[in-house]
Design a protein around this nucleic acid. Structure first.
Lengths: 254, 254
DNA sequence: CATTGACCTTCACGTTGCGTAAAGGTGTAA
DNA sequence: TTACACCTTTACGCAACGTGAAGGTCAATG
């Protein structure tokens, strides 16, 4: 049985272009060229194409497939094992990426919740005040800060222990940042300490720390009003100050 | 503070080419061009670059980053969530690929072990015979077929139940294949039944079945002598016959 | 017999995010 | 002045084809 490109393509479920490409890169040559210049494939080529597609399904690149199908002594099993290693590496990379994206999303949402919380703070205070008159202290615990903070931590899937550490760090960052801001120099020791604490705090959210990402997040504190609002609450300009300190800390600015 | 390409590149840890490329695709334009045609970047561009690199670290493509950083109203968090979905899809694809590669390796090794086993069959028989004279029946259980087969199954991480099913299927494939081979027609009902059984057998090893891969494996039975030896043991030509039957079954040949 | 329509052929550009020359202009110090 | 380190634009290369474009071939039909 003999096939033209289209016929073979249809038989194997690939495009004619693919077959021409495989011809071009010397991975599957037609059995012969007829008088009109048409590619003619025979049974041996059909068989070989099956092999190629088999490895292609497993995600092996054409260059490796070429080695496997052209050299008869080539160890296909060994090639597959090496291929497996590459796939595993890719998978790990992806897992890290996904984890970082997840945590960045959680972080943004955590801030958003705080932001929302702050918006309704006045309203809540009134409610609590009114409730307190009626029902006393225990109701404050029900609607108080702690509860909201804890639900945030739950969203971020943290352990209780981690939650305490991260809360403590957050407090430390705020304190040293306030001190440093009073001095006015983002290169000062205390400002750099704030940046260092901020890094430690961040490492609870990210699996892999990089200077670039840290600096990028610091920039986001200035660009995204939700973050700016959070940091500038006590002292306007604090978000920008923190960004400058972090940019110096990460060596992104002199 | 003003920067030339090189300076900014060094500051941010990217190449000058990257900055020119970002200029080209309108993702980061210099603040101005000086009289000699040099690109000059200012503070705003440094900030923007930080943002770009931040999203790049998370694996977002430049086109999406462009949307995020150019449109001030663009929802970065939403974009990240969509990005997360894409990453998850990729991960699933990868997981399937890895599983299939794993099982194909296990399958090849399983065959190799059988092949090796057969090589040493004569030797083992002699040993067992000798041992039997000395120690009786229980030693046969120790070195017998069953144990070896079960260890193969263990390698392939199968449950005992699956192991029994797959062994039964293997036997059925062999039986119907032998019958069909006697008739000599790979398109016959019984040969096609063998191909169907072979597919069922194969589905214990692969997570995703595809006609192309099935046909490719069948071809491998002919190309790889380890497989050929296994199928041709009783009747030479059986591997080729099975391949033809499967190629007809999968619609890869008329 | 000419035309139509379905094939076939060889270029050759587009896709992503830059790396890597090549060819030529600019800035500054010795 | 010359050397050397910058800068510029242009353009090919990478993987695995998709998608035309321009033109030749084949079988059937008016």
């Amino acid at each position: 049985m003999e096939y033209t490109v289209q016929k073979l393509a249809q038989l194997a479920g690939v495009s004619a272009r693919t077959l021409r490409y495989y011809d071009e890169i010397d991975i599957l040559k037609p059995a012969r060229i007829n008088s009109s210049g048409y590619r003619i494939y025979g049974q041996a080529e059909v068989d070989r194409l099956q092999q190629i597609l088999f490895y292609r399904e497993l995600g092996v690149d054409l260059d490796s497939i070429k080695n496997i199908v052209t050299a008869p002594s080539f160890d296909g099993a060994k090639a597959l094992k090496e291929h497996r290693e590459k796939l595993l590496e890719k998978k790990e990379q992806l897992d890290i990426l996904i984890a970082n994206v997840d945590k960045t999303i959680a972080l943004t949402e955590g801030r958003m919740k705080m932001s929302d919380k702050e918006k309704f703070e006045g309203f809540k205070k009134k409610m609590i005040d009114e409730n307190e008159k009626k029902y006393g202290k225990e109701i404050r615990e029900k609607y108080g800060e702690d509860t909201v903070e804890k639900s945030n931590a739950k969203v971020m899937n943290m352990s209780q222990e981690d939650y305490e550490k991260v809360t403590s760090l957050e407090k430390q960052v705020k304190e040293s940042l306030a001190q440093a801001f009073a001095l006015g120099d983002p290169a000062s020791d205390i400002a750099q300490k704030a940046a260092e604490l901020h890094k430690q705090w961040l490492c609870f959210y990210w699996n892999e720390y990089s200077k670039e990402a840290h600096a990028g997040l610091a920039q986001m504190y200035v660009d995204d009003e939700r973050f700016t609002a959070y940091y500038d609450k006590e002292q306007p300009g604090t978000a920008e100050f923190l960004r400058d300190a972090i940019h110096i800390y990460t060596g992104m600015k002199k």
